[in-house]
Design a protein around this nucleic acid. Structure first.
Lengths: 332, 332
DNA sequence: ACAAATCTTGCAATCGGTTGCAAAGATGAG
DNA sequence: CTCATCTTTGCAACCGATTGCAAGATTTGT
């Protein structure tokens, strides 16, 4: 079958310990032994069994990557970045695709069975308690795109959703929209509610505004489109903050169906700045979320937790900024 | 730290073997022992260490999932389906994100270090030799979206790309397009070349047709758009087969920029039928690739290989069909 | 109630590595 | 050249499980 430590040791004429040591960083082996071992290893095509060694070292370099967002195209970018960032640092992503029914306890158990060194919960819709379940089970965890808090119970990396809500509201107001609406993600998503809070907080400073809000059933094209179609059937607002680019794109599709020109007849501002928003046919004005930095920071935190598991939970919140494109009328 | 077999055995007052046996299917344990053990296990919150047991059983239930397609939105659907299909059967996906430089040897080594039970290469752009490298290293492998062959060297699941090329050509001809073009993916992608072959084979039956072809730099929106813009600068064809929906969508964007109406001025037929193609603003006529069936079949094959590693390589090829939408003029 | 057949159970070896410890070897100072 | 010091090495125990085997416990048949 597969070649083991013992085989290499036999061929090289040294003890198993010697072989083990040549493959572990910073162990004491003479140059002579090392070269004998390396020669034998190459000859046999040996490579150490990571799982077996994890038994004694207690480190698997496996990182659980948990998400429930397999329908928002932004998550392909997220997975791309996460998987690369992890493997660049010698860590291996073990994916968990949360379906609606899966309860936290299940994923926690599963990831513990595989002795993951840490877990990353990548979702803006899961509650802080979900991430906390890992922490409580002794699995270091960072909640990426999680709810920001001044004293979080687990590491959180993401943006200030409330502030983004305000930012969007300010932007609509500054461009002279007077009937403004919030079109958010599902009401049980923490991100949707936080963005809503910020939005309302800001618009309430302007008593002359007419304000409305509604929530789509999911962060998806279809949900955004359906919700906007519903709004258009009645008296719509003239400027909307859509809680996510994919909702915005759905909403844009609804507008065009009604022969309305986005940015002229009705304004839309999104959130995320995903690749697609840049497409000429979409050209969405949106709030940029610095995905790359967020992911790098998340993986940084994972590494730091591996060094010091007792590390005090921290929130790393990144600033967002408005990206000017074609779906809002210009500032006066 | 974490609770082990021994702890449970001690608390339950039985041997370690007894505990192990209550947790392994079909082992011989009396009802009495079993209940004692289960009680103790629950009390301690014990769950067996999958990695430790893999040492003796030789099964990790880890499946390597290897891809280089992190920019085509269809792959979010693919990942969604794969991860669910695997975890529904108690298997765990270990992701490898192939960047351009990564050579096969690296991923093979890495996955062997983690003793994956099998590997799935999910890519239409990688050559058969890539998948074969896993096979040669003793890792059971299935190449999903791989090149179909009558006697493949490894399991292949996918579609007949040559036939899809023919199908697209027939469709264009039947609808009266006389100047037809192939706009394919990168030339080093096997799928792009196979689709090209089929397309040419079919159009060459009609000597009166004017035929052209070109290849985009990647399977991406930007590449499709760029290539179509280039074509429009000269004398474009009147009907195109774009080798992938995302290329098509890029091409459509280029057409609209030039004030051309897809389906009227210039016809486009894609391949994949990804979610986005259904969007009203895109409404792409395309060849449907049965992703779900392909993935289910791939995971089926994985399971069968686990039972019988010597299984003879097999190609499972699924039929495709044209989905009529708005980017080709109707058949006469 | 007894022998034979069938179940259960614990012992101990094993999977592929790692690591503390003490002995052996190398190096340097005097 | 001797002794003290620092490296290198192999032994053996261990990580957390599984499993063949033989002994002990139960069940079954008569």
């Amino acid at each position: 079958m597969s070649v083991t430590l013992k085989d290499v040791a036999a061929l090289a004429g040294v003890s198993r310990s010697a072989v083990s040591r040549t493959f572990t960083e910073g162990a004491s082996v003479s140059a002579k032994t090392r070269s004998k071992v390396e020669k034998a290893a190459k000859e046999l095509g040996y490579s150490p069994n990571a799982l077996a060694s994890s038994l004694t070292t207690g480190r698997t370099k496996l990182i659980g990557l948990i998400s429930n967002n397999f329908h928002n195209p932004i998550f392909l970018e997220v997975f791309d970045q996460f998987t690369r960032a992890l493997q660049d640092r010698g860590l291996r992503p073990l994916i968990v695709n949360l379906t609606d029914e899966t309860e936290p306890a299940n994923s926690v158990r599963m990831l513990r069975q595989y002795s993951v060194d840490a877990a990353i919960v990548a979702s803006s819709t899961l509650p802080p308690s979900f991430a906390k379940a890992f922490h409580d089970a002794g699995v270091p965890v960072v909640h990426t795109f999680g709810r920001s808090a001044t004293s979080p119970e687990v590491h959180v990396v993401g943006i200030d959703n409330v502030e983004c809500g305000r930012m969007a509201a300010r932007e609509l107001v500054a461009r002279g929209y007077r009937r403004v609406g919030y079109l958010g993600g599902p009401q049980d998503a923490t991100s949707a509610m936080d963005r809503y809070r910020g939005f309302m907080e800001e618009v309430e400073k302007h008593p002359d505004l007419k304000v409305s809000h509604s929530f789509a059933g999911a962060y998806s094209f279809e949900a955004g489109r359906a919700e906007m179609l519903r709004l258009l059937a009645d008296t719509p607002a003239d400027g909307y903050f859509c809680g996510d680019d994919i909702l915005s794109i759905g909403a844009l599709s609804a507008l065009r169906d009604h022969g309305l020109e986005p940015g002229k007849d009705i304004g839309i501002i999104g959130l995320n700045d995903m690749e697609m928003s840049r497409w000429e046919s979409i050209d969405l004005t949106t709030i940029h979320q610095p995905i790359k930095q967020i992911i790098t920071a998340s993986v940084d935190l994972v590494e730091e937790m591996l060094k010091d598991p007792e590390r005090y939970p921290e929130a790393r919140i990144f600033p967002c900024r408005v990206i000017e494109r074609g779906t809002l009328r210009p500032r006066p």
